[in-house]
């Protein structure tokens, strides 16, 4: 079971990536190519996110109140600036880095998803222009029209 779970995840990422890549090369319809691109993109994002996973017993990368502010209530506004932060640091509970999921891949992929939809928008805009110029989204038809030199 352990071995299957270990490698099964990676195999599926590769299979999803292969499906996306195949669609990007082999499909004729431009929208279908973009669907393939989205699948390719999410497969890679999935791989990145899974790098940060720390197995059973690890929690989400959001700290609890005690972990940030300490177990004792720190008197507010009595100390200023530097002094206060040192005081607060003194009674913070220890955090074992192995119990919290790695936040770095999450940050990288979060922005990648939003940028992904923006670039998908540009791609869709270009395919709309192509459709209204050549009257088709089919790659073969568009290529034939380009070679005939009309449009």
């Amino acid at each position: 079971m352990e071995f299957i779970v270990n490698n099964f995840n990676y195999w599926i990422y590769v299979i999803l990536m292969m499906i996306g890549l195949f669609a990007m090369i082999a499909k004729n319809n431009l929208i279908k190519k973009l669907v393939g691109m989205t699948i390719f993109q999410t497969a890679i994002i999935l791989f990145y996110v899974s790098i940060g996973v720390k197995g059973e017993g690890a929690t989400i990368p959001i700290l609890s109140y005690e972990q940030v502010h300490g177990t004792h209530h720190v008197e507010e506004a009595d100390h200023a600036g530097e002094d206060d932060s040192h005081h607060a640091q003194a009674d913070l509970p220890e955090i074992d880095a192995r119990t919290i999921t790695n936040p770095i891949p999450h940050v990288l992929m979060l922005t990648a998803i939003v940028v992904g939809v923006a670039t998908l928008g540009v791609a869709l805009a270009i395919s709309q222009r192509i459709f209204h110029f050549y009257g088709s989204l089919d790659e073969d038809v568009i290529l034939a029209k380009i070679q005939k030199g009309d449009g």
């Binding site: 990368p61 959001i62 609890s64 880095a97 770095i104």
Partner: peptide, 28 residues
Amino acid sequence: PLSPANNSALSRHYIEQSRVETAVPNLV
């Protein structure tokens, strides 16, 4: 949890020190 990406100094610094440096619970 001990893979190179998870056990790097940078990742551990963010998890252990960001609460002291920024006081934000959500590490992301």
